[in-house]
Design a protein around this nucleic acid. Structure first.
Lengths: 204, 204
DNA sequence: GCAAATTAATGATTTATTCAAG
DNA sequence: CTTGAATAAATCATTAATTTGC
């Protein structure tokens, strides 16, 4: 509707304007723990979202980048306010200030979800145990994951074949690496061949 | 040659290892002023470089990113050493220190090159004069551009149809915006239809 | 009510930082 | 130690919310 592009028909908006449904689905995926979707995941998500309106893979890619970053910002803000509040209330206590910043190596459960054969809702382990050889499929592990108000609302469960064995909600992996179903290798290869690579791989 | 991938034939190197010729060409393009090649440019460059060995678009993309960044670093380092040297030599002068950092709004000529129909060697203007409407093809303007030791060595001229009207070496545009051949609109559309978009566009 | 003017959100790009192969 | 690859942070730019004066 905005900014007439060429001559007649197509309006050609200068940027993607997501619909409610699209946002809904994306946020659901995010809540499910998806942070840095692989190329294949982006592809699939894009296809799904096309039923609600025009969208491209890059939009999905960008959305996750931005959302992740801005959630992180927001979280930092929240922690900061908590910190300020705390300090206000405990001004009398001994050392002047308590540092708000990111210290906790404690929270941020790295572990999520089992893998469907479609490889959805899965983050690959941060450091694939060395020796994993084949190409750089090293998705960073996601932090956060809390903040899920736990409302598993519509969409998600309809649209995707979910968790064959159920979603792990409890932290299980205490190794510091990500978790896998099969505890051992954690290679990034699964479900057939090509090893899901970075988003870049299907750019070119 | 490194890291045997599958069973037999293809070695599948874990990362691109550029040949001399490839580097040569890339550096030439860089010296020509190319900083952030568009999708089409990357495509074309990639094709060219394939004659010297295996390469993908993303390699080209990354190369320019890294090279740009590291040239900048180097430049900063150079400036810093100059600064240090200066301060060493002028320690006796009045105010204690001269700040080395990025201040000069003075240098960094923004203007380069006319457009061939192939759209090579061109950076799009930073801010397309508002009202430019069509899609986000806003390549950042490149700074630097000096440091070209001016040796237009082999390769380049052979491989590509260069500058029909010649390369501007003198700064011309003093408006603060980038320069265009046609001074007015500076829209990002040229040479046929699709409006060369960002690299991402041919990722998806 | 309703546009023009501001402000807030957020999509898109670029830059900086980090990781690891060779 | 260099540098390809990947991610995160910072920034730019456009669209939507909203405020404001009429």
């Amino acid at each position: 509707m905005t900014l007439g592009g060429g001559a007649a028909g197509t309006p050609v908006a200068s940027r993607w304007n997501p619909t409610k449904e699209q946002i809904n689905l994306l946020e659901n995926l995010y809540r499910q723990g998806l942070r840095t979707p692989t190329a294949d995941q982006i592809q699939e998500i894009t296809v799904r979202l096309k039923t609600y309106g025009h969208i491209e893979g890059k939009n999905v890619f960008y959305w996750f980048q931005n959302h992740k970053a801005r959630q992180r910002q927001k979280e930092k803000q929240d922690h900061l306010s908590l910190f300020r509040q705390y300090n206000r209330h405990h001004r009398h206590l001994h050392p002047p200030f308590i540092h708000p910043s990111p210290p906790p190596n404690v929270v941020y459960e790295p572990c999520y979800i089992p893998q469907t054969n479609l490889g959805f809702y899965v983050q690959q382990p941060t450091k694939p145990e060395k020796f994993v050889a084949v190409a750089g499929g090293s998705n960073m592990m996601s932090r956060e994951q809390d903040e899920s108000k736990n409302y598993i609302d519509q969409e998600t469960l309809d649209l995707f074949p979910m968790h064959p064995t159920g979603i792990l909600k409890e932290p299980v992996d205490t190794t510091g690496n990500g978790c896998c179903l099969a505890s051992s290798a954690c290679t990034s290869s699964f479900s057939g061949g090509t090893v899901d690579r970075m988003y870049f791989d299907f750019f070119f």
